[in-house]
Design a protein around this nucleic acid. Structure first.
Lengths: 209, 209
DNA sequence: CAGATATTCAAACAAGCGTTTAAAAAGAGC
DNA sequence: GCTCTTTTTAAACGCTTGTTTGAATATCTG
């Protein structure tokens, strides 16, 4: 059967694939590169996973585990605190340094967002849906239950955009103002700014509807 | 020399390349596809441009012409009006329907943002810089000249993120809430919402600094 | 018209891709 | 220790990519 070296090779392939795909994206990642990093033969991917596409699916199941996200704060907490917990949690994940699994998760998510594959549905279900549900709940608790659907949709998009911001525009900002203050060194400032800006925007929208 | 058929073929190649690259991105675009659409031979790209990379440079020079952007509103107008003009102009460009040059411009910009090439510097200089300068000026006129640099940088990023939002997250939103109200049909609502939300956020940030 | 130049074309090239093959190596069960 | 199954391996396959080639065609020049 399969016990010792099998598991090692298969796991090594999976780990290598996560790294390469997070770095270069699925299209640019080559089977030879992945097998090279895993110390395995070129044919290993096909033997253990059945092909490059199937390996990608296995990678996504590993990187986006089911039912991992459980919310940022108690739903009974005051709205401002809930929003702060939500944004703080999101920001610390997105802007985390290093090559940990969380960073790779958002890197893969970003690439799928820019160039969707059939697997984006899966990623959205695992990664975005629970957070989006929570955010919507927080917004309703701020704007009130009678908020028009369109305002709710716009506001949700707005706060998502604010949180994802640097993830998406980092390449631009590097070229636009290379000496700008980094987010990493001012994470607390950044999150507080986000909360203040978001709440200001939400209240303004609430008053005008 | 080159007068009739040369110009025709060269222009046809350029037009075809713009379309294909805006659709699929530079990497996924093949010279055979481009030449096919242009009704030219496979060797035409190398003959007229010297290679695929050089063709891409020519495409970018065509799509991002120099000195095209002249600002959205008079700098003497009231801040709210300037911000409205700025966001309205940006939104109408980004969310414009059809395959016009403006739509292709933002499509190429999005792909470069997600996967930067050495040419992103050029695009930023032509496409982003003038708008970013104007936006910064508008924000200063709202927050005041003594605003800390960090707040200014954060606020600029925030409003850029709000404007680019749907361009970046459209693929997500399609999967998250397929029946959401479209932006295209409510452009005026959307822009007004953006202005209100942004001003609310800015004033909140101003008060807390 | 002739001759030089510019352009098009079918074909081939080298390199890289994911995948397949068949034999060698390693391990499991008795 | 021997047999059967699982895993690894080097080599090759078929395909697509961007690019090159050299001959054929078109265009311009004097």
């Amino acid at each position: 059967m399969n016990e010792k070296n099998d598991v090692n090779t298969k796991d090594a392939l999976l780990a290598a694939a996560i790294g390469v795909i997070a770095d270069k994206g699925f299209d640019a990642a080559t089977v030879r590169d992945i097998c090279g990093r895993a110390g395995a033969n070129v044919a290993a991917v096909n033997y253990h996973f059945g092909g490059k596409d199937a390996l990608y699916v296995a990678v996504l199941r590993e990187v986006f585990p089911k039912g991992e996200y459980n919310g940022s704060a108690s739903s009974s907490a005051p709205p401002r605190e809930r929003l702060h917990a939500f944004l703080s949690n999101l920001a610390s994940e997105i802007y985390e340094r290093g090559n940990g699994l969380v960073a790779q998760r958002w890197a893969i998510f970003l690439r799928e967002m820019a160039k969707p594959s059939p697997n984006l549905d899966f990623i959205v279900r695992r990664q975005v849906q629970p957070r989006a549900d929570e955010l919507r709940d927080i917004i309703v608790s701020i704007l009130g239950p009678d908020t028009p659907e369109q305002v709710l949709a716009f506001a949700s998009s707005n706060i998502w955009a604010l949180a994802l911001d640097h993830l998406l525009t980092q390449s631009i900002l590097d070229r636009l103002s290379p000496q700008r203050p980094t987010v990493h060194g001012n994470m607390e400032d950044f999150v507080n700014h986000l909360v203040t800006f978001s709440l200001g925007g939400l209240h303004a929208v609430k008053g005008s509807s």
